[in-house]
């Protein structure tokens, strides 16, 4: 008996002509994502002057720089929590609607229009003479025009306008993925609406909500155009992406820019891993039903 050919042996491990189709896409990702990443990492360790870790040392010793981390988190974490806190109950009501499409279409608008457009609109809408201030004064909630742009709240509002629909649509897709018969079963067994939510829905949703939190957080954490346009880019909303951009493209110090980009990625990954890690404490299987 002859030993199987190399081709047969490779095919039995899953390598054949079809597998090779992965190569072009893989090559592009290696060239445009992995290589630049390591290039940037190396670049960040070759500062313009000083020791190899000088960029990082400078960043963490300069309050103007290291405070951007806090400024970013101080925006991203509250916004993500607010978006998710509203997304869950609303998704729970919308799941019962038979015609969700109009609502989801409206909500997808700010996501597709993007942060720049929303920032432009909010500058008018939230401005001292904008409709928001006018309505608030009209109903008596504000005494006079309140400054809502070029500060923390402007950026906050823009992150809610684009981030809430994102969190909502993701949550909705998780919520509607749960077999409705599971809730009905809990109801016939004597669980009140509150118990059904706490004991059945929530445990089933936690993994999905963790993922939603992470994706929503990544978006808020990466805030850039609205922090410049709607916030005070030299003050309270000087977020880390502004610091990275300024270093690389205004001071032409790509080494420092890359270093800040690396710090940015690291901080974000730490939070994401913390959230996803806590997910393992909960059930992580299919929620669609228990068939098969």
């Amino acid at each position: 008996m002859r030993a199987p050919s190399l081709r047969t042996r490779l095919a039995s491990r899953g390598f054949d002509g079809t597998t090779l189709l992965v190569l072009p896409g893989l090559a592009v990702m290696l060239g445009l994502f992995i290589y630049p990443f390591f290039y940037g990492l190396a670049d960040s360790l070759m500062p313009k002057e000083g020791v190899w870790y000088a960029n990082y040392a400078n960043f963490f010793s300069d309050p103007f720089q290291y405070r951007t981390i806090a400024a970013t988190l101080w925006l991203a974490i509250p916004v993500t929590i607010v978006n998710l806190a509203f997304a869950v109950p609303i998704a729970f009501r919308v799941r019962l609607m038979t015609r969700q499409r109009l609502l989801t279409t409206i909500l997808v608008l700010p996501i597709t229009l993007g942060t720049v457009f929303v920032a432009d609109g909010l500058l008018t809408f939230l401005g001292p003479q904008g409709w928001f201030n006018r309505v608030m004064i009209l109903v008596g909630l504000f005494d006079g025009p309140v400054k809502l742009t070029n500060n923390y709240w402007g950026v906050f509002a823009s992150l809610v306008i684009t981030g809430f629909p994102f969190a909502f649509l993701l949550t909705l897709s998780y919520v509607t993925g749960i077999d409705p018969a599971i809730e009905q079963a809990a109801a016939t067994l004597g669980a009140s609406p509150r118990q059904r939510f706490m004991r059945v829905f929530l445990p089933l949703l936690v993994p999905g909500l963790a993922v939603t939190f992470c994706l929503a957080f990544v978006q808020a954490f990466a805030v850039f155009p609205s922090a410049v346009l709607l916030g005070s880019p030299a003050g309270s909303t000087r977020v880390i992406s502004i610091a990275a951009y300024q270093a690389a493209f205004e001071q032409y110090d790509h080494s420092l820019g890359s270093a800040i980009a690396m710090i940015m990625g690291a901080v974000e990954l730490v939070i994401v891993l913390l959230v996803l890690g806590s997910r393992s404490l909960f059930y992580r299987g299919p929620t669609g039903g228990t068939k098969g």
Partner: peptide
């Protein structure tokens, strides 16, 4: 429905996927 006290068996079974058999039955 939760106040009627009827037992129901669903076509899709509708077991709680995150609970053991014991906790499902004991729910």
């Amino acid at each position: 429905p939760e106040k009627r006290g009827f037992g129901m068996v669903f076509q899709s079974y509708a077991l709680f996927p995150h609970m053991s058999v014991r906790r499902n039955v004991g729910f």
